[in-house]
Structures are given as C-alpha cells and as structure tokens.
Design a protein around this nucleic acid. Sequence first.
DNA 1: CGGGTCGTTGACCGTGATCAAGTAACGTGG
DNA 2: CCACGTTACTTGATCACGGTCAACGACCCG
Lengths: 249, 249
Amino acid sequence: MSEQSSDSCFVAMMRHYIELDSHDEDLLARLEQSEQRYSNRDVVVREGDSSSKLWVVRSGWFFSSVNLADGRRQVYRVHFPGDVIGFPDIAFRERTSTLEAATDGWLCPFPKQALDDIFIRSSRLTALLFSLGMVNQAVVLDRLRSTGRMSAKERVAQFLLELQSRLRITDPDLSSEFLVPLTQEVIGDALGLTNVYVSRTLQALVSDGLIERRPGRVNLLHDEELRRLCGFIDRYAEIDTSWFPSLRN
Amino acid sequence: MSEQSSDSCFVAMMRHYIELDSHDEDLLARLEQSEQRYSNRDVVVREGDSSSKLWVVRSGWFFSSVNLADGRRQVYRVHFPGDVIGFPDIAFRERTSTLEAATDGWLCPFPKQALDDIFIRSSRLTALLFSLGMVNQAVVLDRLRSTGRMSAKERVAQFLLELQSRLRITDPDLSSEFLVPLTQEVIGDALGLTNVYVSRTLQALVSDGLIERRPGRVNLLHDEELRRLCGFIDRYAEIDTSWFPSLRN
DNA sequence: CGGGTCGTTGACCGTGATCAAGTAACGTGG
DNA sequence: CCACGTTACTTGATCACGGTCAACGACCCG
C-alpha cells in the first residue's frame, strides 16, 4: 500500500537480509514489471525450452523437476512467493528443468539481461543475489545428503522443516501448522521415495506423535524432536553479509 | 611459462568460457597469491569452522562432504585443479562442509572479500563467476537426480562420465582412460552407496564391457552406451555467455 | 450421478545394506 | 630384504527398507 512497495514479497525477502536504498529497490522493482497467471498443474516451461527468462513468484506454489526418459522424476525445489526461479539455468541456453504450478498463482517473468543492470549498478545487490544463490545450493546439498544417506522418516522430517523455515522468511508469524498444497507424489519425487511410501512414512510420524495431519496441511508438533531426528539446520535464518560492499558504492 | 600466466589452471578454466583482458586477469591473479601444501587425507577445514576463506585448487584432488552425527557421510563434490572451492559456503559464517585432500596437492586460499573487488570492478567476471556457480548447482542437481531416482549402475556411470567431462575442461586431450585417485568408499559416499556395492557395481560394468579397470584408473570403453545408460548431459561443455556485460564496462 | 485425482492398504519382491572374513598392495622400520 | 601394520578391495551370506502392483475408498467438480 505504501510507496515503499512492501506489497512485494520479493522485496520483503531481500529486506529480510540487507538494508535496501531506493536505488536498489528500483532495480528490484524492474524484475516484477510484468506478470502472468497460472493454474494448478500448468507447465510453465519444459526441459529443453529456451532459457532466456527467470521469474519472481508473486503468489502460489510452484516446483521444478528433472525428468528421465522412462518417467522417473526428481523434484529438486519447491518455489514460494518471493522466490526467484531459474538461477540454476542461468548458465545454459536451454532449460535443464521443468517448471510446474502446484497451485493457482502468479509469476513475474524477466529476461536474463535484467541481471546485467544489477551486476553493473549495484555490487551490493549482486553480492546478495550471489549469496542467495549459494543458500539455495546449500539447501540442495542438504537434500542430497538426506536422499543419499537418510531413512524415509528422516527425509520427510527434513522436508517438512525446510518448508516451514522457508515460509517463515516472508511470514515470520507462521504457526506450527501450515498449508502444504503438494501431492504425496510430488513430495516423493522430491525425496526419492514413492507416493506409497510417503503415505506410510507420514502415518508413522503421526503415530510417533511428531506431527498431525489435516487435509492439505500439517502440524509440526515436536519441533525439537523433528530437528534432532534429521539433524536439521536452518540455512535461511541468517546469512553472512559482513563481506558485502557497503551501501553506496 | 609465458607472461600470459597460462601456468594457472584457474585462469585457463576461466578462459575456456570467455575472453579475458589483462584487467580481468589481474583480478584473478590476486586469488592465487598465496598457496599451501596438503597431503593425502589431510583435513583442510571442518564443518563448523569459520567460513572466511575460499580456495583455488592448484594441483591435486580434494573433496567436500557433509557428515551426520552417526558417521554417515555424503560427499557432494570432488575438486580438481582450476576449481574454486567454497562458493556454497559464501553465505554462511560457518563452514557447512568438510574439505579433505584425496591426494597430495596445493591450494591457494583467498578471503571472501577478494570477491568484492571483482563484483565492483568487473561485472563481466561477476557474471562468469555467477554462471559457474550455477553450473555447479546444475551438477549437484544431476547428482540429486541420480541419487534419488537411479540404480547403482546408472549412478556409477554418471559419476565416471562427470569426472571425465570436468577433467577435459582443463585437459582437452584427456583420453578415455584416466586416473581416479578416489577410494571406493569416497565414491560410495558421493553416490549414496556403500563401498561394497561400488565394488560390485564396477565389476558389473566391467563384465558388461562398458569399462576397464586398472589400479587407480578407469577406461571408459563405450562412451556412447554409458551416456545412454544414465541419460548423461555434459553441463560443462559450454555456457551461455550471450547475456554477459561486454568486455570493457 | 459419473469420471478423475489423490490417498490408503495389502501382498510380495528386489536392490542394495550389513556383517564378517579374506586377500592384495603398500610403506615403514628393523 | 623381510616382518609388520595399515588401508583398500573383494567375496559370500543374510537381511530390511522401500519399491511395485493392484484394489479400494474419499473427495471434488461437472
């Protein structure tokens, strides 16, 4: 509502980490100039399509996946409002992943070249974008660790905790119960499990008393114990900005 | 030997992707000012140590891993000469992974702040570093896909092909046979397998006629079929530099 | 109503883990 | 040069986690 453009959850996310001046905000605002609506299960882009755009999520949940020829699928990231989608593809001419909508929602597409502007005009925003890219990488590494070395129960616990932490960046008051508009098949494809085993694992967590379920939502009852179970580390809470270039540079 | 400082495999790697002017080369040279020797199995830094430095690999093989409390380990990347180590940790105050030497070798440590210089003074190098970071991410995503959704045979095939592709960036003439100074335990920890099953899988690939083994080295006999087996995509061959800022900016 | 998607349940199976013993290669010190 | 310890790799036997397949129920929307 205010002229401070805090109606953008993208700017809100950036402000979660560093102080922005109006010059920086202008640069960011350009990334959200246009927008496009998608419905649940729409495919935004496919693997192999041209990779000239990125997106800021304005509303809704989306996810990116890579698909094998025989239908096996790996979901590697779920995207929330405020997220930038597409950084891993920035280095390639063709999309390496497929982007789909998990709910109805709005995306703001912008061309790769818009990043030039930022690189040239704000080394501070550059450092932040760079860092956020690396946080994402750290999260993928956590996922790799869980997929490679952890049991189904540990994986599901970590997945739920990751969702909660990330949702709290733009919604700090999020309670222990929150919406999860993902099918168990998508969750399974994110964790290297089948939909069947996700179902069984969620039931196991319920009967352990660690979570509660209602249709489309979960309640993380024992945060502490869930964290202990999977050795969860919240990558998003804070980042190291001490080495960033100073505000006006 | 020449003044063009092509004795640095790091500069060689950067030059593989874009044209560098002397200004850019000076900036890169600063990252290799100091150097330190490590022996096989030395630990360079541990999870939880302060995360103020990055490294350029001058010689030898290293690897980064995350460790669970009970001893389970996930190796998430093997580092070769020319690689920059530590980007995923750039956003954090503490190291999220442990860095160890897989052979004797030399590292060139440099402080995070050295990247400031680059961000401020060369938006072109910034774009390249950013892109290389994203290539690494894409490779981790490939690994995630294989760990989450592929059989042991497919995983090992992909791992060997990835090593070969990456080694060819700085050594284009690398033959189908090359050195792999990694224990089967490290390979297993990279792929989410046990050392025992790595051994069995390598034997299976040999008896399929796809590879040959000699102590410390492998020979990829049927490139084509190996690639088909695991749906391998070479992420390193080329990156999209079309959107980069122009040479003098 | 009817069709589609999503989640649950049961029976069975297979990949890869686990445990344990044995072998080979290597460096070190005597 | 050999004895020794260590590390890496191999082999075999057994086991279990999670996959697969199939049927069924709940729910939603037209």
